[in-house]
Design a protein around this nucleic acid. Sequence first.
DNA 1: TTGTTTACTTACTAATAAGTAAGTACATTT
DNA 2: AAATGTACTTACTTATTAGTAAGTAAACAA
Lengths: 183, 183
Amino acid sequence: MQDTREKIVGLADHLIKTKGFNAFSYKDISDPLAIKNAAVHYYFPSKADLGQAVLDQEISTLESGINSWQALPEDQQLRHLIASFENKCNSHMVCIMGSLSPDYNTLPVNMQERLQQFSAAVIAWLTGLLENGRKKGIFSFRGDAGDRALIIVSNLLASLLLSRVIGENAFEKISKQLLDDIL
Amino acid sequence: MQDTREKIVGLADHLIKTKGFNAFSYKDISDPLAIKNAAVHYYFPSKADLGQAVLDQEISTLESGINSWQALPEDQQLRHLIASFENKCNSHMVCIMGSLSPDYNTLPVNMQERLQQFSAAVIAWLTGLLENGRKKGIFSFRGDAGDRALIIVSNLLASLLLSRVIGENAFEKISKQLLDDIL
DNA sequence: TTGTTTACTTACTAATAAGTAAGTACATTT
DNA sequence: AAATGTACTTACTTATTAGTAAGTAAACAA
């Protein structure tokens, strides 16, 4: 069954977002699935392979999300992005970038590359979104759209981290201000 | 000598900011100091004790920094804060909050408490700074000063994380926009 | 001078980590 | 019916981890 493979990747994704890549082991995956750790190694010989699979899934999930919002007005697309972060906040997760970037120096090279790919994709999409939205008069902000995209990504990422420590209203406050600043 | 103790805390602080709390071991500290791992355990019986010492030092360093800027105009104080993050960026470090918050769920309780203390101290100080600066006409921004403080902390924290992945100019761009938004 | 404290080292233990080699049960293909 | 592939398990190895108990050499105190 391809089912087990998907369950492993899903669990690994969740573990990265709750405990961090260096803080989970194959046992954390094999136990809940009621299989042996060697079964996880059967699908993903090394932890680097598993990490890469998680990032590949994150990238394709992002791309399909972006695609499905394509026809919506720019502010609605931005709200969808923010809503996806709100979901993570409510289930006490951080985003993949927020989890993996502090550990960046300790990650295998293949994971570093995918993480760069992921962040480049988010920023490129958001930059275009802001630019188009500004042209249409939906958004209003000063300065370069790329810089504004960076600010928004930066705030969403950090809001999940801060929510862990100072409580969940950190996310609300930050995301509200973010929208207020450009609408 | 108290010297060794301080060197241990200093090294641990650096390791947390470069590799993360769960990714360094006592060997990473004992080797460069040319002592045995048991010598580290002599000063800090458990890793939780060492982590607490690092956070206590971070808190007192923060407080003495804040104190030394007290007499300066508010924008100068903010620039000092930003400069301290720029230093971290240049030496390829993230801040203590940026490193520890993704691992928050895996941290011992004493470290969770100190991390809350640390973030509360930063935000309380920055909130007061922004409020005073706005009264004097040095800063100009909409909304609650506490929310704005959250945004600034959030951006500074995340800019160091993003710099790791997408390059160092992420920090420049974000910090520049931050100042532009309120000056 | 004797005893005690300080700052370690030596030499471990127990637990957990990632990873592997060989075997097995079942399904599918030839 | 025989051979092969799939999805695992059993049973390990090797490395690393946090942590500890007991010893030691030098400094200091009574």
